[in-house]
């Protein structure tokens, strides 16, 4: 064929599905992440607490091991919503550290090296790109959050029997949903910080500071102004309030449930807005 006839022609070969295209990004990102030894160490450290909880469940279900203990101590060995709430609290802190470690490498290098046009020149939308990057974190955080949580639940259900399962089956849903919300929040914060500062090194510190400093600001507001609404600027505290509701545990007086949900939604919207402003396929140089 003459060269001048080789004009643009649409690709006629088989097309991959939209989901398969989205999964390409997590697939490569996971491979790169798991090459880092420190991440593996962090993941292993994150599994110590679930292991300790498993031992606790084993002890709680073998009354012969603590037969000599008084009633107060025996009461502490009960497996209920409070037990899973404590489990979730500890894992949430580890999840924040993991997100701060892994999150910055998701978007920052693409922005710093002007690689976004390369992504968006392929059949991938901005939403698709963001979802794929969030899937990387979801995949990384799941083995330290809801997966061990549900395994612990299954272990307890297996050891305690149907009576316990009939009374506490909602805990499994609460645990899964609670961790899902946490992962969503962490992924949004990580992506936004990563996109906002562009540099991996700084973005990690920003993610960490976001959660710790906002917790400090909340306490400062409460302490100085003698109010109780300061918790509304602490994302992890609001998440805790939501978890209390999901697990049916007596919640703290503040923040309120409706307020927490509204503020979490507002925070998510702000993060999505910042992210959408930063994730642009082209950069206009003025």
């Amino acid at each position: 064929m003459a060269v001048y006839k080789r004009g643009y022609q649409r690709y006629q070969g088989p097309l991959t599905s939209r989901t398969a295209r989205l999964l390409v990004l997590p697939w490569f990102a996971w491979r790169r992440l798991f090459e880092q030894r420190l991440l593996i160490v962090l993941l292993i450290v994150s599994l110590f607490w679930p292991l300790a909880c498993a031992v606790f469940i084993y002890l709680a279900n073998h009354s012969e091991l603590w037969a000599g203990l008084d009633r107060e101590v025996s009461g502490l060995l009960e497996i209920n919503g409070r037990f899973f709430l404590t489990f979730m609290n500890v894992q949430a802190v580890l999840a924040v550290v993991l997100a701060a470690f892994a999150g910055p490498s998701l978007v920052a290098p693409d922005l710093a090296n002007n690689a976004l046009p390369l992504y968006f020149s392929r059949p991938l939308s901005r939403t698709g790109y963001a979802l794929a990057r969030m899937a990387v974190l979801a995949g990384l955080l799941s083995p330290v959050t809801w997966i061990p949580g549900l395994l612990l639940f299954a272990m307890q259900a297996g050891m305690a029997g149907w009576t316990w399962l009939a009374s506490y089956w909602t805990l499994a849903i609460g645990l899964f949903a609670g961790f899902l919300f946490l992962i969503l929040q962490l992924a949004l914060v990580s992506l936004t910080c990563s996109a906002y500062v562009k540099w991996r090194a700084i973005a990690g510190a920003l993610i960490l500071a976001f959660f710790f400093v906002l917790a400090g600001v909340a306490e400062t507001i409460d302490g100085v102004l003698r109010v109780t609404w300061g918790a509304f600027v602490n994302p992890l505290r609001m998440m805790y309030r939501l978890w209390c509701e999901l697990l049916g545990v007596a919640p703290p007086e503040n923040p309120g449930l409706a307020g927490s949900i509204v503020m979490l939604l507002v925070l998510a919207l702000i993060l999505v807005w910042v992210l959408s402003r930063k994730l642009r396929p082209v950069e206009v140089v003025s």
Partner: peptide
Amino acid sequence: LRNPIVPAVVLL
């Protein structure tokens, strides 16, 4: 260190 998260988390 290249990653500031490591000293930040360890020191915290």
